[in-house]
């Protein structure tokens, strides 16, 4: 693929140099805090207190063992994965079946429904009534109740509706002529065609669940159900003074998340580039 910057000689070079300088500064901002984290994780507490930034001399790996012993991090990560995955999956499937007929006006009141979703975009999280709702349903301190909180996300619906509008209407007619049913049409023809939009929605929605810190404080009291965010906050409350142990814990959590992201990144990017065909 050719790109914009392949023009005449001089401007390419300066453009590239400026680009690299910009990237280099950003990398400093992103790597700096991380390196500090690694360095701290390898220190002993007195060493840290004496000189916070000095390069570690003790290579105190016992921080990792400490952090590992003191909290049930694998369980927390696993919980986070389950919550994120289940809720995102259910949400995206239901969202496609909401967005498609609204976008095509195949159901009555399509326009007012869409307006409702636009308004919902601006609604502040209704923490208090939601809490009572979950209590009333008997789903407090229950993973199902927790997942239920994340089955709604208006921005996703809007993104999907807009994207589906770009699909030609003839597609529907042709499919119907071929005798394809509604469910099968949406599932096996529309869904693959709107993959880029779905990928974006999946990423946005999953990030929100993965990063949630308030809901687990309010809804989950059993530590077996804690997602990683809550687990870390509790860990920080207990060992907050001990920066080296805390840093070790954070590092240990960073690795699996990075791996997870690297695995998923290919899906995301390939999903996104699939949209290039459409233009």
């Amino acid at each position: 693929m050719k790109n914009a910057k392949e023009s005449n000689g001089k401007s390419i070079k300066w453009g590239l140099v400026a680009s690299y300088i910009f990237l280099f500064l950003l990398v400093l901002a992103y790597l700096g805090p991380l390196l500090m984290l690694v360095n701290t994780a390898l220190k002993t507490m007195p060493e840290f207190m004496k000189n916070a930034t000095g390069i570690t001399t003790s290579f105190n790996f016992s921080n990792f063992a400490d952090a590992w012993e003191k909290a049930n991090f694998p369980q927390y990560i696993w919980n986070s994965i389950i919550y994120t995955f289940t809720a995102t999956f259910i949400y995206v499937i239901t969202a496609v079946f909401v967005a498609f007929p609204i976008s095509r006006k195949y159901v009555k009141f399509s326009t007012p429904l869409l307006t409702l979703f636009v308004i919902a975009l601006f609604l502040p999280p209704a923490l208090i009534p939601q809490f009572r709702l979950i209590l009333g349903l008997g789903l407090y301190n229950n993973p199902i109740g927790y997942i239920m909180l994340f089955l709604v996300n208006p921005i996703g619906i809007i993104i999907l509706v807009n994207y589906i509008k770009t699909l030609p209407l003839e597609l529907d007619e042709a499919a119907a002529l071929e005798g394809c049913g509604y469910l099968r049409f949406v599932w096996s023809i529309v869904l693959p065609l709107i993959r880029p939009a779905v990928a974006t929605v999946v990423v946005l929605h999953a990030i929100g669940i993965w990063n949630e810190i308030i809901a687990p404080t309010i809804y989950l009291t059993n530590k077996d159900y804690y997602p990683i965010t809550r687990g870390l906050i509790v860990f920080q409350g207990v060992y907050g003074s001990n920066w080296p142990t805390l840093a070790a814990a954070v590092l240990m959590l960073t690795f699996p998340m990075l791996v997870l992201f690297l695995v998923l990144q290919r899906q995301i990017v390939s999903g996104l580039t699939a949209g290039a065909v459409k233009g």
Partner: peptide
């Protein structure tokens, strides 16, 4: 919803079962 999720490709997570264990 659970039915819908369960009939979709085999990816449903096993979280629905730990609800009553407490």
């Amino acid at each position: 919803a659970i039915f819908l999720a369960a009939c979709a490709p085999k990816e449903t997570a096993p979280s629905t079962s730990d609800g009553s264990s407490s």
